[in-house]
Design a protein around this nucleic acid. Structure first.
Lengths: 198, 198
DNA sequence: AGTAAAAGAATGAATGTTCATTCCGCTCAC
DNA sequence: GTGAGCGGAATGAACATTCATTCTTTTACT
């Protein structure tokens, strides 16, 4: 009466679900949600069109799964392992470099998250994840305010400026305007801090 | 043999073309290019579906016309009437306030230009207009560099940071994060200048 | 262990819908 | 009366999704 260990679990080993997610990430980023046909996703994933619907209820469910997965991954990647007692100026540096690293290591995911930010087909759960990231961001700048090391402004404004600059920088470098060398990244970090510091 | 003055020129007086452009601007901004059905544009414009094709060759032609018109208008609005001899610090202030004014006065057009920036269905002529704006931006920061009043960095990087911060700020305020009071706008301008000044 | 039956996964042609675009009859300014 | 301008039903293509079928893996039984 030996326990039967399944030799084949399609969801984990064959990787069809992952293929679909990978293909969808690329196509949604390149062509947008409405601009991407499901059979095209299937083709790029190397599966039948019907197979997608074994793993995802609908096109919307697919884009939401993708959004949640990557947004959650991004947030935890950025925030992990920074002790609360780290000086805030140093925290800013750490977060900045992690943001840049994320965009460089996962450029398509970065583009995807950017393109689908606040899209009307994102569901309540996706918005909640989005909200969570925003709360963390604002919290950080509130801490900075409390220590009086940044300008006296709404933390939302400081966050918008810094994150806007970050996104602008990543997009420009991806468009080929300049090389994202370590020097440039550090310089940009300094710019952003000087933008908000008291 | 009196010159016949047309009493009725549909393109100029009846305003159907303008209605279509207005409706398309709103819908493309809210729902994206592929997410917007032409009959819906017709309905919102208050014209028959076929009428759109009397004024625009195709959906793509419509979105490109819209993009070009607004981008050109934005660029000339921002750049007009600033004498070359104006101190660059002052020019920066002027351009900043005009950018903000544009986004406040034409929020939907601002969202449209943002959403369709670099979209794959923009044609060569639209890209040229885009390029023209970019050139002007980079030129300004090159001037700043020459006068050594900004950090020694690629002008593209400085431009990306400032424009990114601008877009981030406008989006955040539109999302309801804070009120875009004169005080906030001025403060943000100061932040951006301090980000790049030497 | 070997084999036949059952279960589960995958498929892609078929379905019904929605879309961009066309076309034809109607209206009205002249 | 007539022709330019218009509307909106008609058209064919493209889409998201379904489902009958095939193929693969697991189970049951000898």
């Amino acid at each position: 009466m030996t326990k039967v260990v399944p030799l084949y679990d399609s969801a984990e080993i064959s990787g069809k679900r992952d293929s679909i997610l990978r293909a969808a990430l690329q196509l949604f980023t390149e062509r947008g949600f409405h601009g991407t046909a499901m059979p095209l996703v299937a083709e790029l994933a190397g599966v039948g069109a019907g197979t997608i619907y074994r793993y995802f209820e609908s096109k919307e469910a697919l884009v939401n799964t993708l959004y949640r997965n990557w947004k959650e991954f991004q947030i935890t990647t950025i925030l992990k392992d920074v002790p609360a007692e780290t000086p805030l100026r140093e925290q800013f540096q750490i977060y900045w470099h992690r943001l840049v690293e994320f965009a460089c290591e996962f450029p398509i995911a970065f583009g995807f998250l950017e393109l689908h930010f606040h899209a009307p087909y994102l569901d309540a759960e996706s918005r909640e994840v989005e909200e969570h990231g925003h709360t963390a961001l604002i919290g950080f700048f509130q801490n900075c305010m409390r220590q009086q090391i940044v300008k006296e402004s709404p933390p939302e404004m400081l966050g918008a400026i810094v994150m806007g600059a970050y996104v602008g920088l990543m997009k420009a470098s991806r468009a080929g305007c300049f090389e994202l060398s370590k020097e440039i990244v550090d310089k940009a970090e300094a710019c952003c801090w000087e933008a908000i510091r008291r």
